[in-house]
């Protein structure tokens, strides 16, 4: 299968990429290419030009900065798996398959805000922060403000997610996933982390238009109670042939319970 014709360039630097996006609003940033290229091949997306930022050194590597790990947006899932940052390595092991993990990047996945992606739940549970650069300079967005809707993140047109800041001091964390039998994306994923202050943060992905925190669950667990049921009562769940809204809500309960038991 051939995608419609496209022009392909490699970016020289982050600023160069930002400038190029401002010059050509139709330009699409490509990182691993595992989300955009399939869409292009199905002709769901037909950008005339691709700008590859995969090899930009400034977006590589994991550094430490005070109370945070600073993860470059182009760090691959495989590299995340081998890192010592909290929660994300376990989650990365659930992303796609070895091939996707070699090419796919943490920044590409998070900026894409696929409602079935795994990382958003981890970002919410860890309280990660997102460093976003545009023509106007750099800004930092908290996890709770990052995921706005289906394929909609706080990264705006012309901007680039450059780094993800993940707090240290998380003593334990888990990710439970129920995967889609065909695509292996999350039908539901539940991430949970116990922070330095002893408080548990939890979030889910896959089940609704965007990943979100689980306040009822956090409240119960932090009060020493069981996870219980009805955790997403009243929330708008996605539903399809493989899993209805009702089933997804049920899976949030089941996976939350399993996660809580594993977290200890």
């Amino acid at each position: 299968m051939y995608p419609a014709n496209f022009d392909y360039q490699k970016a020289a630097s982050v600023d160069d990429a930002i400038k190029a996006m401002s010059d050509n609003p139709e330009l699409k940033i490509i990182a691993g290419g595992h989300s955009l290229l399939p869409a292009m091949k199905l002709r769901l997306a037909q950008p005339p030009a691709l700008l590859d930022i995969f090899n930009l050194e400034e977006l590589k590597g994991i550094k430490e900065d005070g109370d945070f790990y600073v993860v470059g947006a182009m760090v691959t899932h495989a590299d995340v798996m081998r890192s010592k940052i909290p929660l994300f390595p376990e989650v990365a092991g659930w992303v796609g398959d070895p091939m996707v993990r070699n090419r796919g990047t943490i920044g590409g996945s998070l900026a894409h805000a696929d409602p079935s992606a795994d990382y958003p739940a981890a970002a919410l549970a860890t309280g990660a922060e997102f460093v976003i650069r545009g023509m106007g300079g750099e800004r930092t967005v908290g996890a709770d403000e990052m995921f706005l809707g289906m394929f909609e993140s706080a990264v705006e047109a012309g901007e680039l997610l450059t780094h993800i800041r993940i707090p240290k001091g998380i003593s334990s964390s888990v990710y439970e996933k129920y995967r889609h039998p065909a695509s292996h994306y999350a039908i539901v994923g539940v991430a949970m982390a116990r922070h330095a202050d002893g408080q548990i943060r939890a979030a889910y992905t896959g089940a609704a238009e965007k990943a979100a925190r689980l306040p009822k669950l956090e409240e119960r667990l932090n009060a020493g109670q069981d996870a219980g049921t009805g955790l997403v009562e009243g929330a708008d769940m996605l539903g399809d042939r493989f899993a209805s809204a009702e089933f997804r809500a049920h899976l949030v309960d089941v996976l939350s319970d399993r996660a809580a038991k594993r977290l200890g």
């Binding site: 392909y8 490699k10 595992h34 290229l37 590859d52 091939m99 996707v100 070699n102 090419r103």
Partner: peptide
């Protein structure tokens, strides 16, 4: 081989610098 073109079937797998890579999703320039 081509099998699905969207990176699922794996028939197009090659190694790039030793890593498994789906050639159907890889721009040659990259």
């Amino acid at each position: 081989h081509y099998g699905c073109g969207i990176g699922i079937c794996g028939s197009c797998t090659v190694l790039v610098d030793g890593q498994v890579t789906r050639s159907c999703l890889t721009p040659v320039a990259s």
